[in-house]
Design a binder for these strands. Structure first.
Lengths: 151, 151
DNA sequence: CATGATTAGATTGTGTCCAATGTAAACTCA
DNA sequence: TGAGTTTACATTGGACACAATCTAATCATG
């Protein structure tokens, strides 16, 4: 394809989709950081709270399944959320291996404050709700392909 | 929009574009990891090499400008690339504050091996080159918007 | 020219992310 | 039932990413 000694344009940074995703990820977290800082959360911690606001309680494994994170990441993260008073962790009675993660009153209350977060950030990403949905579909398809490839 | 006590669907994980980008970023690095491991590189290290294969030498600041990374990230990363024998770091004669990063013969040689990397990974992302370009455009626009928003 | 401000990198500390390993509980099935 | 396997989570260690601070060199301005 490329001749010897010439620039291989597939190796050019700007041509790489993956670099755009990498930059996009960091750019978006830059948008979230100041907003979430007011809630005392990091972005991954916010994701865990989103999951628990949808369904509570959940085991550590269930939270991990939702976010595709393992205990190596979740254990210390959940410990910090517990220290912050937002969640409680208790060994499940039915299976002493599992740990149930549940929201505290403070953790539930934080949801009210968080209600404004998506609008504050999402507005930067798309002009219209339709465009937002459309982009989301494309990303979703792409993610499915990536997940399938790593199988 | 949402009534009190009802689920706020903007807080649903699956509705959030940012979560897709977050997952996409990690999914794509999962694809790169085994391929780059054969070159002895992590993904961020690979990015630095891409930048240097395009233009060599560069100061630490120039590399950082290209990747949007600061010295807090780059200093230890470049130290590891130096230990691996891929780059050299020398104080610039013209300005003793700057450090010039240059490829070693080994670092230049690695490029041949890396030539197959984009195809190995990019194939998972899009079926056709046209689709790839189209997706890239969309990401590029979105990134521009995000960068503009964080100003 | 001397002093204060700015700049380039390095360092330190915190929080992910992931691989590898450890530990205790639960399961399997001979 | 009981020994071996599997499962759930915790821990450790390496590598980013980012904020904050530090140091040394350069610049700006009087």
């Amino acid at each position: 394809m490329t001749r010897r000694g010439r620039v291989d344009e597939t190796l050019l940074l700007d041509n790489q989709l993956c670099f755009l995703v990498y930059r996009l990820h960091r750019g978006i977290t830059d948008l979230y950081r100041p907003v979430l800082a007011e809630l005392g959360l990091t972005y991954p911690q916010y994701l865990v709270m989103l999951v628990l606001w949808e369904s509570d309680p959940l085991t550590v494994g269930q939270v991990g399944g939702r976010l595709h994170l393992d205990s190596g990441t979740l254990s210390p993260l959940l410990k910090r959320l517990e220290t912050a008073g937002l969640i409680a962790r208790t060994r499940a009675a039915s299976d002493e291996r599992s740990v149930e993660v549940s929201l505290t009153a403070q953790g539930r209350a934080l949801r009210e404050q968080a209600a404004t977060v998506p609008a504050a950030v999402g507005g930067c990403l798309s002009a219209t709700a339709d465009e937002y949905r459309q982009t989301r579909e494309l990303f979703s398809d792409l993610l499915a392909r990536v997940d399938a490839a790593s199988r």
